[in-house]
Write a protein that binds this DNA or RNA. Sequence first.
DNA 1: ATGGTAGACGATCTA
Length: 263
Amino acid sequence: MKIVTWNINGIKARIGNLMVWLKDSQPDIVCLQEIKSVDDQFPRAEIEALGYNVETHGQKGFNGVAILSKYPFDEVNRGLPGENGDEQARFIEGVFSTEKGVLRVVSLYLPNGNPIGTEKFSYKLAWMARLEQWAVERLKLEEPLILAGDYNVIPEPIDAKNPAAWVNDALFQPESRQAFRRLCNLGFAEAVRAVTDAPDTYTFWDYQAGAWQKNNGIRIDFLLLSPEAANRFSSAAIEKHVRAWEKPSDHVPVAIDLALETA
DNA sequence: ATGGTAGACGATCTA
C-alpha cells in the first residue's frame, strides 16, 4: 500500500498538477497540506472520479489539510484536541480497514513559527506539545498509525543544504528540534531516515533565490510510523521530479510502501 | 542588510 504526504501549497493553483501526479504515482492514501481552501470549494468531484474518497479540513485563505484514500473512511476526526481546540485547520485523522486490519493516518500541517520570539513561535511549541500528548494516547491502541505531514522542523544539520542559514529560523531552533525528537522518541520510526542516512534528500526548496536550481533545500516533510506500522514498512521515496514541473509546489511528495494488503 | 517568489485575496498576510 502506497501512502504519500504532500504539501501542495494551494489546491486551486495545484489541481492540474495533482491530477497528473495521481494518475502517474498511483497512491492509495494521500495526505495533503496547505490546501488553502474552505471545504465546499475543494475540487472533490475530479478527485473522486479517479476512485478516491476525499475528506478535508479547510479554512479560508491559509492552512488546511485533506486525506484522499482508495479505502473508504471508517472514521474521520478534524482538529488536534487540547486546549480550546484548533482555530487553525492543521490536523485531520482517518481510520481505514485494510486486509491486515485497522490503519490510522493523520495529515498534519505544523505551525511555521516564524519569527522566533513572537506568539507565533510559542504557538508552534504549544501545538507540538499537544501533538505529543495526542500521540501518547493513540500509541496505547497499539495499531498501525502514520503521522504524515509538513512538520516545519529541520531535525538535524544533515536535513539542510546550508544549516547555517537557518540558525535564526523557527524551523531549526533547539526547542523545535527537541520537540520533534520527543515525539519520535515515543516510539515512532521516521520512514525516510529509517532507510537512508544520505544527505541531499530534501523535500522543500524555496521559490526564491534559485533554491531549486542550486539544490538549496531542507527536509521538513515526514511520515512517522508507530511500531505496528514500522513492522510492515518496506520502502520510502522522495518524488523529487515533481519540483521541476510547471507551476510546482515548493514541497514534493514523500511516499512509503506498507505491507497491509494480501500478497 | 536586503530582497528575491508564490498563493489567496482583494489590504496585506503567510510562508
